[in-house]
Design a protein around this nucleic acid. Structure first.
Lengths: 203, 203
DNA sequence: GTCTATAGAAGGATAGAC
DNA sequence: GTCTATCCTTCTATAGAC
């Protein structure tokens, strides 16, 4: 029914908020119900248990995050341009979903098999392979030093994701220096591609 | 008494393990008691409540982490040497305390005031100021580009800490590529200083 | 200081009316 | 499909014996 779909979505969205903020252990079904404007019984009617509701939320968010991560790299631009586009798009994405990194990094241990499934999916495997092949080309044509591709991939992602994963901490430090978090990450959209390119381009 | 001190330490160490692994919400007093080889009542005898026990653990671990972080930079070496020493020492520290980053990043939101106190402490303020002054010198004497010092500080830390914060996720990906996490971070001790220096040194 | 036993509260889940 | 009322388990915390 129309009504059914709507309620389910409202509940799901409320659950996303609460789980992102509190994690599965800290989240309360009562709070999710309150935020959705319904009662606890209805949560169970739609999702059966807290565990299953969490699973649904986790799968959705993990899928969104990882697809975005790799698709930002999915183009035929030369390495330097690819990097510029990546940080632009990826940091914009993180600005729109600032709690996603710490949520996923915290809860991922409870779902190793689910995450493995995502990374083993056709689409993600393909994107990752594309990325690595393009790096190989860039190494061959001399745009890139002959460095460890996995190390570089982690370096690149660390630089965009870490500030969001550590946001709570960073904001405390920034307050003491009168720095605004949003300004800070906004700057990184253009600063990081330069940083990384200097680090790895062939001299 | 001798006995008293000993028991308190045993409980504390057990609490460190369980809180690091499960977080405050996921941790159970029963599990801490079991791991300490005593019963629940004794936990409350020594620490009064779960909350207070957690506070003690959190303060200790946060102190250890942040003091180590800044003290690794506390020397008069030129920038390049400082970086080499930092990554060597800091990654070794993280290898010895692999769960620390994700524990702190997750729980930090529940203790903003406590964390602010640590970062406002004399010792930490002093270490941080030293670090920034040394960066200024390196910029003046031309060893370093004239870049944003806060940005650079976050870049440097992101590169060492992120792999540990994201360890659960990274190990899943590495399994698909037959890469060993420990080998991976070991390599970073020497690779990261080069990476960062290339990124920021004056041409 | 350490234990057993239990109180008391919280939270996930379900029954049953509408 | 949605609500109220309530069950039942789990967990923190304490009382009281040794």
């Amino acid at each position: 029914m129309e009504k059914e779909k709507q309620t389910e979505e409202i509940i799901f969205d409320a659950a996303v908020q609460v789980f992102e903020e509190k994690g599965i252990d800290g989240a309360r079904m009562q709070e999710i119900a309150d935020r959705a404007g319904i009662n606890k019984a209805l949560l169970h009617y739609y999702f059966r248990s807290k565990e299953k509701l969490f699973d649904a939320v986790f799968d959705k968010l993990a899928g969104v995050m990882f697809k975005k991560l790799f698709s930002c790299f999915d183009n035929e631009l030369p390495f330097e341009e690819k990097l510029k586009l990546f940080y632009q798009e990826h940091i914009s994405f993180l600005q729109a979903h600032p709690r996603l990194p710490s949520f996923l990094l915290t809860e991922i241990n409870k779902h190793p098999q689910r995450v493995a499934a995502i990374f083993g999916s056709e689409r993600i495997m393909e994107l990752r392979q594309n990325l690595f092949e393009q790096m190989d080309e860039d190494i061959e044509n001399g745009a890139l030093q002959d460095i460890d591709k996995m190390q570089l991939m982690i370096d690149i992602i660390a630089l965009s994701v870490f500030p969001f994963a550590a946001r709570g901490l960073i904001e405390i430090i920034f307050k003491q220096h009168d720095i605004d978090f949003n300004d800070f990450v906004e700057q990184r959209k253009t600063a990081l591609p330069i940083f990384v390119i200097n680090a790895v381009k062939e001299k």
